[in-house]
Amino acid sequence: MSVATTAVSRAAVRIPPTVVLSFLVVAIVLLWSLVPGLFTSQDPAVGVPADKFAAPGAAHWFGTDQLGRDLYSRVVHGTASSVSSALVAIGIGVVAGGLIGLIAGFAGRWADTVLGRLVDVLLAIPEFLLAVIIVSSLGFRTINAAVATGISAVGVFARVMRAEVIKTRRAVFVEASYLQGGSRWHILLRHVLPNASRSLLALAVLQFGLSILLIASLAFLGYGDPPPASDWGLLISVGKDYPLAPWLIYAPALVMIATVLSVNRISRWLRKTD
């Protein structure tokens, strides 16, 4: 037992440098979303119109936009909306999807069949199309885009949860536990959930990155909060109308790519150490 733990802890200590960098990036992004005021003193909603379209420089790290607003500040303040909406989406996916998968795996064949078809529908409709329809029904706000993204992710989480539940139920030690008089709840809490949580965690991290992209895509097409909100996708969408100021596109795009890349790196590392 002690040999195994030292081996595990040794592996844990040897985190690859790219993963460390990824954690750093994610930490910065999370800080931007929690305390944007700490990172920039300029106002993201108000600018000096005479300074419009200034290129990146000392005064404005990312340059300014068409109303003279500091782009760096807008990106930092937009992080809250981009990141928190992705978290909302994942929350919905994990909770709703996990619940559906759990019931499907545990309850009888009838529940499994019905829920299975529901999940099939969610998976059969292309993710973006599904999100677009749900957002158009709820209203064009970023929080609704988050809900829509969450609903499109439910199917994936449900499938994984269901597979984990079935796998665990069939495991020999669970049968033994049953025979020893353990109730279904007992099995659920002590065996199924802990085992499932590892794969769900890796999936959640991966889907977090994908949700950021999906919400940005929705914002890009206009299915999100309108200006002066500064969602990354919205910034790019507004920026593309001013080709004379390419930093309006490249700055938020690079921030978004760096974030998702870091999240993906962490997700891959999590899967490897599983």
Binding site: A216, S217, F220
Partner: peptide, 14 residues
């Protein structure tokens, strides 16, 4: 592959 998955296709397109 991981890099490609992080690139939003609208940015690539633009």
């Amino acid at each position: 592959p991981s890099l490609f998955l992080s690139l939003p296709n609208f940015v690539i397109g633009l």
